[in-house]
Nucleic acid binder design. Sequence first.
DNA 1: GTGGTCTAGACCACA
DNA 2: GTGGTCTAGACCACA
Lengths: 123, 123, 123, 123
Amino acid sequence: MISIDYQSKLPLYEQIAQRFQTLILRGVLPADSQMPSVRSLAMELSINPNTIQKAYSLLEQQGYIYPVKGRGNFVADSTALAREKKTSLLKEVRHLLAYGRELGIQKDEYINVIEQLYAKEGL
Amino acid sequence: MISIDYQSKLPLYEQIAQRFQTLILRGVLPADSQMPSVRSLAMELSINPNTIQKAYSLLEQQGYIYPVKGRGNFVADSTALAREKKTSLLKEVRHLLAYGRELGIQKDEYINVIEQLYAKEGL
Amino acid sequence: MISIDYQSKLPLYEQIAQRFQTLILRGVLPADSQMPSVRSLAMELSINPNTIQKAYSLLEQQGYIYPVKGRGNFVADSTALAREKKTSLLKEVRHLLAYGRELGIQKDEYINVIEQLYAKEGL
Amino acid sequence: MISIDYQSKLPLYEQIAQRFQTLILRGVLPADSQMPSVRSLAMELSINPNTIQKAYSLLEQQGYIYPVKGRGNFVADSTALAREKKTSLLKEVRHLLAYGRELGIQKDEYINVIEQLYAKEGL
DNA sequence: GTGGTCTAGACCACA
DNA sequence: GTGGTCTAGACCACA
């Protein structure tokens, strides 16, 4: 469920954290379900447990997971986080589009991208 | 003309290079005009000359500027680069929008962003 | 009667022990009354019996309870303990206040806290 | 300037972070002054650089210090933090005092502690 | 020189 | 079994 890109400039622990963020925000990992243990995930990905630990710390700090002493980490309720994430993503989109516009990209070109995107699965 | 964000995760030399890329692509710095000298820009920004040098090397490597021995660096013709940049930016947009879609952002929300953006200056 | 805070940094067994200490020191649990059995309390709190056992061991070691073979654990006489506890708590208060003073908290601010506290129930 | 208590239950990185918090809040380390480098402090305290790193990360996350790429960490402006810290400390005091009151500590005993504390240096 | 990331491996508290 | 802390040591990007 977690894949790693060793070419990426992003550090491993951020890649792992981001991947889990997506899975949690999309509801693939439901609230209160148990996260894989630090060690089992480390084994599975052939990565040092410390690195997984760091990813989990980040997720906890951001409110995606919560620890239960001696039992492991669990998925937090992410409804609030999802709202925030959506807002910040739209803001990012706005900036990127504005930058493109300054470089001469036309309105239609953006519209096309959107139409293609949402045409894909009949949504 | 060049501003620096010390909070940014981007290294200084990339910030500087990006800023010049934009200025060149938008035509603010026309082809064959002279770039500020490494030293003068370093002074102006209170930054290590090595950092400016690295930014210029990057720009040269990407084809945005060309060096003239003993005279400094000059802006290259960027018409070809502009096309490439536009393409890569649209690709980036596509990815970002697709990611947002997976998190539940609706088509309309994107359309709205675009409408607002292009309404701004009557374009 | 025993509540647990899973967000707390304190381990469960210490939380449980502390809670009982308070109940005993305040006289809610009188001397020689029987403590809930390890199993029943574990059931009630949905907690591992080992954890309750550890809390009880701590309480026994501190002199708050005593075990009777085959019959369970009982509340000890806590008059001596109460005196000690009061002393150690005042010491703790002294440290905390001193630290606050170093950070610039004024005498009056502390006095206010005390006045409010003891005004509450006319004591 | 930084001392470590190996008997303490607090992990080293928290001890170090707390110590710096105090020094910063008290103004001993003024805003924008440079923090000791991770490595030099590690050497000085005979502690692993990773542990210092972790302490600094915590301080950064809490807003006590800010990093400047390639140059090191610097003390942030702590006026806002000082206010928050004072508030949270007073809250802590309130809880501790209330707990003591429930165990039978009298108003006068608290007042005495305060008087002694502020008598010390004629404040 | 500065911090940031990562591995390998150990030890410990907790449930 | 679970996470948390720490050491030793390496490598890298950045300024």
